[in-house]
């Protein structure tokens, strides 16, 4: 079992410190929920871990071995907020390159894949494409999965379908998930971390989310 650790991350935009005291670790078999207000740096933190955003200081390592780019050699996969599939290639061809062969049967059995495997991304509606892209990342080869707002742009019933898939996937992988739909995050996560004033607060009791001013009530 591997452990992903992100530490000493410092990110500044236009002289404003976005991230300054970030400590986060995620073991395979664990789902970490990352919460925080708009603009607090949740997506930036995920991009720094993935390796597509440079920070002034950062340590990202797996089993205490520093990794420069998280995506190299399929160590970490990242679901961005935007659509990422090339629009001119059939979905089954794209999926075969991304999905872990060990998870292929599970992925290929998903109703959303069955419906659209022979279409291109350009022929699928926004919400359904989002669902397909999320499923591809969850079933990818990576040891750790970063999901940036997977519950946004999809219907509540689709969100309910995701949660068991995320839990099942977490048996083999470490998952860090962030979204504004905090109730979904609380439901699916083993641990919750709140990003506030650039620092990570490890939440042990959901009441603390009220104390820190993230929500007004549960």
């Amino acid at each position: 079992m591997y452990t992903l650790r992100a530490d000493s991350i410092e990110l500044t935009f236009d002289g404003r410190k976005i991230l300054q005291d970030v400590h986060l670790s995620c073991k395979q078999g664990e789902v970490i929920g990352l919460l925080g207000r708009n603009g607090c740096g949740k997506s930036s933190l995920l991009k720094i871990i993935f390796g597509t955003l440079n920070a002034a200081h950062r340590y990202v390592g797996i089993d205490d071995k520093f990794i420069h780019k998280g995506y190299h050699n399929n160590r970490i996969a990242y679901l961005p907020q935007h659509n990422y599939l090339p629009t001119n290639i059939r979905i089954d061809k794209l999926a075969r390159l991304l999905v872990d062969p060990l998870s292929w049967d599970d992925f290929a059995g998903l109703p959303i894949y069955q419906r659209y495997f022979n279409k291109t991304a350009g022929q699928v509606s926004g919400g359904e494409l989002r669902q397909l892209e999320t499923m591809m990342i969850i079933h990818s080869r990576a040891d750790f999965i970063l999901l940036d707002e997977p519950f946004t742009h999809i219907s509540p019933i689709q969100a309910d379908e995701f949660k068991p898939v995320i839990r099942a996937c977490a048996k083999r992988k470490g998952i860090i998930v962030t979204d504004h739909q905090y109730y979904n995050i609380l439901e699916v996560s083993d641990k919750v971390i709140l990003l506030k004033d650039g620092c990570t607060k490890h939440i042990t009791n959901n009441e603390e989310l009220i104390t820190y001013g993230y929500i007004s009530g549960i």
């Binding site: 390796g51 990242y78 990422y84 599939l85 990342i137």
Partner: peptide, 8 residues
């Protein structure tokens, strides 16, 4: 946007 596919 599609760069993320290749990185993944």
């Amino acid at each position: 946007n599609v760069y993320m596919y290749y990185r993944n």
